[in-house]
Design a protein around this nucleic acid. Structure first.
Length: 231
DNA sequence: CGTGTGTTCAAAGCTCGACT
DNA sequence: AGTCGAGCTTTGAACACACG
């Protein structure tokens, strides 16, 4: 949809709701100036989040659509996540872990897939790894990881590795980007409590695991030097 | 050399306030 | 309702440095 049409729709919906630009801006947490920009056909100058909030306040849904070479778009979107997962799965294998990737589950109302489910036979330790190519919602990420760990204890690990795990560890893997490090630092209170083990301690545990840790690890994207730093 | 951490810088996105 | 400039915050990228 073009900016002009978007602006006309915004204005029509706002007037229908009998709101001024200022009132609408207040309702969705943006400025009157931003509302004005959209209505004058300059919506592309605002972020997607702002546009979504604006139209949500008008009881409408804002949905940008992107098309690119048919089915290749999904592959492109998945690329960074897959690469990060692949790098970490290789690391686990080198350390002697048995590794399964994309383990799907469906139990009761809970369904989804575990990015990496690893198994350490000597200690009967299962490791649930969540790969995030970008940390968006800390709470949702931790909640989902909890669910996967619980289901792994109950059934998934046993089905996969033939034994009931003695303990289930959890690990959140993020790209070693400045932005993700900042997000982790900002969410220190929540992440510190949920996933207290970091960096060197996590790597040491991966070499000789004992018990169930709750950890967070930054992993460099080795295939994107230049765009991502090596560290 | 690989990894972890902190700092700096420029650009983008946005708000605020004055003004028309 | 709309314009404009100042200023703030966030982000990605590039470095520097320490450590094993």
């Amino acid at each position: 949809m073009d900016d002009i049409r978007q602006g006309r729709i915004c204005r029509a919906l706002r007037l229908r709701a009998r709101l001024t630009q200022k009132q609408l801006g207040r309702a969705c947490g943006i400025s009157q100036q931003a509302v004005s920009l959209v209505e004058r056909g300059h919506g592309s100058r605002l972020s997607g989040l702002t546009m979504r909030r604006l139209f949500a306040a008008l009881d409408a849904r804002w949905e940008p659509t992107v098309s690119w070479r048919g089915g290749e778009l999904d592959r492109l979107l998945d690329e960074r996540h897959a690469r990060l997962g692949g790098t970490f799965a290789d690391l686990l294998r080198r350390r002697g872990w048995r590794v399964d990737v994309e383990v799907t589950y469906a139990k009761y109302a809970e369904r989804g897939s575990i990015d990496i489910l690893a198994w350490w036979p000597a200690g009967r330790i299962a490791l649930v790894v969540e790969i995030k190519s970008e940390l968006v919602s800390v709470e949702a990420t931790i909640r989902k990881l909890d669910e996967k760990v619980r289901l792994s204890i109950e059934s998934i690990a046993e089905t996969r590795f033939g034994e009931r795990p003695r303990s289930v560890a959890r690990l959140l893997v993020l790209p070693a980007s400045t932005t993700d490090r900042r997000r982790v630092a900002r969410a220190h209170a929540i992440l510190g409590a949920a996933l207290p083990v970091r960096s060197d301690a996590v790597r040491a545990w991966l070499r000789s695991p004992a018990g169930a840790i709750r950890g967070l690890l930054f992993v460099a994207d080795t295939n994107r030097r230049g765009l991502w730093r090596g560290g």
